[in-house]
Amino acid sequence: MAETTRSIFTKGIWAENPVYRQVLGICSALAVTNLLANTLLMCAGVIFTTAMSNLTISILRNHIPKRIRMMVQVLIIASFVMMVDIMIRASAPDIHRFIGPYVGLIITNCIIMGRAEAFASQNKPLPSLLDGLAAGLGYSMVLIAIALVREPLGFGTVLGHPLPVRDLWWHSWTIMIMPPGAFFTLGLLTWWARAKTDPSLQ
């Protein structure tokens, strides 16, 4: 079990990372990463949804009729996303006003449906829960890395706190706040990560 757990986390976070290896979940990765606070809430929502939907689908896997399994999976995923959406709207309304549309789009995030179909529908509940956590953490790790580049360069802040004596030495790069900044950062990160993880490129 220990080996399996390690293997699940290694794959989800590093070797088969959903963002830079499978190029999934790119829409939100580009959209919400110009501020770290927004990114962290989005990541919490995705981790919760991947973990809980994987767990639920795994528990029900032997009872779900094959011909409607995808409908059931979407219904379960959508329910968890609606719960996440309501909780973010209640606890952080200002952040919700910005990331709200992307929280709704978690329903269509290929990472979640992919893990449900490829793993949770064929495995026991605990490994499925861990697999969901690993996929969510892998997604989050990349988003946080992008946000940690974009927010300081674009706003001169980290989590809203200004960099030390920012006005004396830093001029904000507006392009990093805008979509091209996300494309540049994600592209560079993917390039670096592939070079590190793909043996054929080493």
């Binding site: 029900l60 009872h63 779900i64 009729p65 011909r67 409607i68 409908m71 059931v72 219904l75 379960i76």
Partner: peptide
């Protein structure tokens, strides 16, 4: 069964 299951899950 399919209808009942979908209804129960919903």
């Amino acid at each position: 069964y399919v209808l009942g299951f979908m209804l129960a899950v919903s």
